[in-house]
Amino acid sequence: MSKVNITIDGQQYQVPAGEKLLWAALDCGVYIPHLCANKDKERPDASCRLCFVEIEGFDAPVTSCTQEVFEGMVVKTRTARVDRLVQTAFELLLSNHKLRCGKCPQNRQCELQKISRERKLKLKLTRLRPLLTEEKAVDDSTDVFIYDPNRCVLCGQCIWVDHKVVEVGAIGFINRGFKRKMGTFGDVPLAESRCTQCGECVKVCPVGALVFKEKTE
C-alpha cells in the first residue's frame, strides 16, 4: 500500500494514501474528538461536527472524517478557530444531554467525558441554556438493555449496526430537526419492535444512551 507524508501539529508521519485524516491521525496516536465517525461507512456522516482541524492552504477548518490525506499535508488539530468550533459543538451537545454523570451507568466510559478531558472542556453548561426541559421516557422494555433518549447524541452508530451489520432493521432516525431521534416503527417500545435484543447496538453506543441492564444495577 502506498504511503504519504503528512505533518500533524509539527510531527511528521507516514500514513496510508487514500485514508481519511481522522483515522490516520488516530492511528498515529493523535486524538481528535469524534462521535459519529465509522471507518466502515461508505460515506462519512460528518454529523457530530467535533473532528474539526485546520489544514495549511485551506481557508476554513474542515472535518477530518471527510478529508482525505495527501502528500505534504500540514495539519493543526488545535487552533483558535478549531477550539472555538469544537467547544461550541460540544456545549450544544451537552445542552441537550442529561448531565448527571455520577448517576450514569457509563460514567468513566463515556466519549463525552473523554472529549472533556482531552480538550479541557467543562461537563456543565455555562453559556448556553438547557434544551432538555422535559425528560423523555426511558425504554427498559427489553431484557438485555435500556435506551435512555435523554443521553443520546444522535451519532447514528446503533442504527448503522442494526441495519448494516446484524441486518435487523428495528431502529432508525425518526422525525426531523430538533425532534430527530433514534426510534422504532410507530414509536413502540423496543421489545415490541423487530429488535432481536442481540445487544450489538449497545456495544457501539459512545455514551450512556444504550446500556446493558447488568450495568444499571
Binding site: H163, G169, I171, G172, I174, N175, F185, R194
Partner: peptide, 20 residues
C-alpha cells in the same frame, strides 16, 4: 407495513421517511 414488505425494507425506514 404493507409497503415495507413490498419494497423489502424495514418498516422503520418507511417510518423515517413518513416522519421526515
Amino acid at each position: 407495513e404493507q409497503v415495507a414488505r413490498a419494497l423489502d425494507i424495514p418498516e422503520v425506514d418507511v417510518y423515517s421517511v413518513a416522519t421526515f
